[in-house]
Amino acid sequence: MQTKKLSPLQWVLMLMALTVTLFPVFWILMTAIKPPTDWNASPAIWVPSEPTFVNFKTLFDPEAIREYGVGGVSQSATKAVFGSVLASVTATFLSVLIGLFSAIGISRYGDGNKATPLIILSGRMFPPAAIAVPFVIIFSNIGLTDSYVGLIAIYVAVTLPFSTWMLKSFVDDLPREIEEAAMIDGLSRMRAHLTVTIPLIKGGLFATTMFIFILNWSEFMFALVLSYTNVSTIPVQLAKYVTATAGTLYGVQAALAVLAMVPLVIVGYLIQGHLARGMTFGAIKQ
């Protein structure tokens, strides 16, 4: 990595940007370790004097919060965490897999057909709320509401335009002659794509996977309208901490939010090299 000297003005702007970005993260982290009395104290308590893990405990043991005299949590978050992992991982895998092959198809064999990629993209042009209701009706007719199959199907459908278009741009940037050279060297078309194209767009593939995973991981509306008892995800669970009896359980919500951030931070850290390369892939053509 190249290091760069910043001018004082750049320093100030950078600090401002960092503050804006990181303040909510800081606040969530602090709230997650505040006892219930500190959650919405006025004036605000920035750093709790008596940090506690009771909020995290309450996530998996709803009774834990009662030691502070607060009740009303009925359900543990275990199922939601499991549901989020299952739905996001599966849907991301399928979306990227299908998107990869459509991207190669459009880029290499599309032959000037501009309509298909646009039709695929048009799936993203509807506001999700507009298609949520028809989806609920259709899914309840065919028995897919409140099932992971249904939730994964809709996640794949919704993220496929992104994965296709993102991967298409990476495939477009790769000169097709490299694959053709491989075919002349003795590979079939399919093997040329599998063993030449895919390794060469690795960075883009990681970046796309990460992006699609974040979309799926943080999706709220479809999960909300399509889940009743069998299915739950973290964003849906977060909404359940707004209770009728005890008000909003800010600390518990914050604790779950912190947990939800963990995989993103870890994965993001692990692939940041690829991510940076993926993002600039098009800019450094040799």
Partner: peptide
């Protein structure tokens, strides 16, 4: 026939070496 089955070798216009 696919290129691999044609008993030819070719140098492409922009060489197309495998960069990796």
């Amino acid at each position: 026939l696919e290129p691999k089955d044609r008993d030819i070798a070719m140098i492409l216009d922009n060489l197309a070496l495998y960069p990796n």
